[in-house]
Design a protein around this nucleic acid. Sequence first.
DNA 1: TTTTGAGTTGTTCGA
DNA 2: GTCGAACAACTCAAA
Length: 456
Amino acid sequence: MPSILWFRRDLRRHDNPALVAALDAARDDGDGTVVPLFVLDPRLCNAAGDTRRAWLSRSLHALDATLGGALVVRHGDPTLLVPEVAAAAGAASVHVAADFGPYGATRDRAVENVLAASGRRLERTGSPYAVAPGRVVKGDGTAYRVYTPFYRAWVEHGWRPPAADPDAWPDWRMDPSGPLACDGIPDAPDVDLPPVGEAAALERWDAFRIDGLAAYGELRDRADLAGTSSLSAHLRWGEIHPRTLLAELDGSPSHTVFRKEIAWREFYADVLHRAPESAHTWLDPRFAAMEHDDGPGADDRFEAWRLGRTGFPFVDAGMRQLLAEGWMHNRVRMVTASFLVKDLHLPWQRGARWFMTALRDGDLASNQQGWQWVAGSGTDAAPYFRIFNPVTQGLRFDPDGDYVRRYVPELRGLGGRSAHEPWTQGQLAPDYPDRLVDHAEERDESLARYTAIKNP
DNA sequence: TTTTGAGTTGTTCGA
DNA sequence: GTCGAACAACTCAAA
């Protein structure tokens, strides 16, 4: 009897425990046939912008190719379609990697119930994380709310080595398939992306491990250099598993810094799993009382931010990188987010929604918790008066102005670090917008608003 | 239960 | 230009 392997955010063959489980189940039933399935759920398609949908489509093509063209793609509601495919294949079990997101976990319970009505099982094996959310707990059984203690406990908990490949791949069931892209967009959208798919992810990891990892601790914050791993979108789609990365890290300082970045991804997944409502509301409920600027002009300021026209070069470069590439350097994500929340006094949810749409690596847990961290309502234990200065940050992390000039053509006439302060350079950048706000004034305004909710 | 120590990523001011 | 202190007194985990 065949089994179903339902792919979601685990678009790979190697180090895939659910695949091994699906194959074992099929063999136990005297068969070696596995039906690989992906459901293009409109709910997920509609939340993603062009670059993320393009990434998904290319990743599905790559996966389909490694499965000999056998990937079954259905368009619509998984609650209906997964049981339908299972029934049509005569499968007793559907195998997945567990989804711990608010939507995915609810959807999976619904699918599980419908399957059970016809005597079929949903089997969860593994997850997109080295340690499943909910596993790392304090002595009293509750969740960690501070990163460093979580990190220590997470390392202490440990993780499995990568899953070995099966001795033989399953006989993938060949089946007619729908288009490998969300409805309403071309099957091969015209978006400029780096190579996508499992093979590309493994190549990227190899290149980074050999050429970039040793200097990671030193260079990861530099916006003008390629000092980061660029693995975020591969991880988001499960083209590579964090176990695969962790297995090759040692105790050296740079490796430890990289391990800690992986741990942030796991921490934020844990926080969201324990507090699903924090995808939309303040993790610290006091922040619901925060005063925001939502009167006339707020929409114009939001658009200036979104389109990279705030008059602050480091902020504008980041926002234009996001528009052009569907990706932004992590350091610049913090600075642009801080600017929206603390200089424009707009709610973090608004910026988070745009990031989720535009980012090709858009991950609900990392994105929303990262925004909450910046807004002060999240898991940051530091004092609230830590407010990023967009100019100082630019001078520190793009010291020669190269990053700013790469994404803001109006500033290309300004040499070196002066590109971060065009207002001191006379008329050398006539087409570049004036500063939207006075940072020093808005900083004071933010501090006052924070004080008001901390000491009501 | 109480106490203690530490907390991703900062900024500004004045010497 | 560089350095240390002040910011304001919080939250959390563990001893």
